[in-house]
């Protein structure tokens, strides 16, 4: 797809193009997200970029009331929790993401079900004291 080096920065930079990118080992076929320079399965070093569909299923989650400063700065608090989740992508690997939905969604544990289908949503975050950035989120399909 391209010859960009498999670094964590390049992984995040693809978010600006709404692309969830990882890589695939040319030797054993296993996929990584974010990309790795050395295959985690066969330890081969010939890999190529691939784009993930962004579709997956919720593996586990927590509705966090006492949040990290970064989320507190986004307005989340004990009465207004946010959802941290682990998503298994349809290509196989898992990744952490901020699970979002319609107003009030994150405050209601009953809305969440392990196995529920989700799709990636790139979240544009602007908070005090940091450069605007894009985070990986997921929303219900």
């Amino acid at each position: 797809m391209n010859n960009e080096e498999f670094t964590i920065k390049n992984y995040f930079d693809f978010f600006a193009e709404n692309k969830l990118m990882g890589n695939k080992c040319n030797n054993c076929g296993i996929m990584h997200i974010p990309p790795k320079k050395i295959c985690n399965k066969c330890y081969g070093t010939k890999l190529e970029w691939i784009e993930f569909s962004g579709k997956g299923t919720l593996q586990t989650y927590s509705l966090i009331g006492v949040g990290a400063r970064y989320f507190v700065n986004q307005g989340y608090k004990i009465e207004n929790p946010y959802c941290f989740g682990i998503v298994q992508l349809e290509e196989g690997p898992c990744i952490s993401g901020h699970i979002v939905g319609p107003e009030g969604f994150e405050q209601n544990p009953k809305k969440f079900k392990i196995g529920m289908p989700l799709k990636a949503k790139f979240l544009h975050v602007e908070t005090e004291g940091i450069e605007p950035k894009i985070d990986l989120g997921f929303e219900p399909i």
Binding site: S62, V66, G85
Partner: peptide, 17 residues
């Protein structure tokens, strides 16, 4: 961390599972 993980949050995810 950018997904919102805290220490209690990660163990809570283990608890949910």
């Amino acid at each position: 961390y950018p997904a919102g993980a805290t220490f209690p949050g990660l163990y809570a995810a283990v608890a949910t599972a």
